[in-house]
């Protein structure tokens, strides 16, 4: 099963689990499976119209899924999916 790595701020919605194993054939299926197990994650990952939030990066191993086939990207059992909220900012207002 593919493993989804949960970042520290979202573990409060996964019973503190660092990773969740999901049987799925695409990244989208894996994320759907994750939300089925932990529905409170949905509003943190998706907008109300069902799109991944702009600041939520999803990586398949070391590749951004935006540059693969997005949520239709196929996965293998040995794959790692990482959910990585963006890190940015700066002094200018």
């Amino acid at each position: 099963m593919a493993k989804i790595q949960i970042p520290t701020p979202l573990r409060q919605y996964t019973n503190k689990r660092e990773s969740i194993e999901i049987k799925a054939s695409t990244v989208g299926d894996a994320l759907s499976g994750l939300l089925a197990k932990h529905p409170d994650l949905r509003r943190h990952l998706y907008t109300e119209d069902g799109k991944l939030r702009a600041f939520v990066n999803v990586y398949l191993n070391d590749e951004d899924i935006r540059y693969l086939q997005k949520e239709a990207t196929t996965i293998k059992d040995s794959d790692n999916i990482s959910i990585v909220p963006s890190i940015a900012g700066g002094a200018r207002q």
């Binding site: 963006s86 900012g89 700066g90």
Partner: peptide, 27 residues
């Protein structure tokens, strides 16, 4: 605009998170 903005490449974060996990550390 590096003098008043920053952004970390998420790919770098994925690597740092993975290496930290291997040492038992979290971000």
């Amino acid at each position: 605009s590096p003098h008043n903005r920053y952004h970390i490449d998420p790919r770098e974060l994925v690597r740092i998170q993975r290496e930290g996990r291997e040492r038992g550390e979290d971000i």
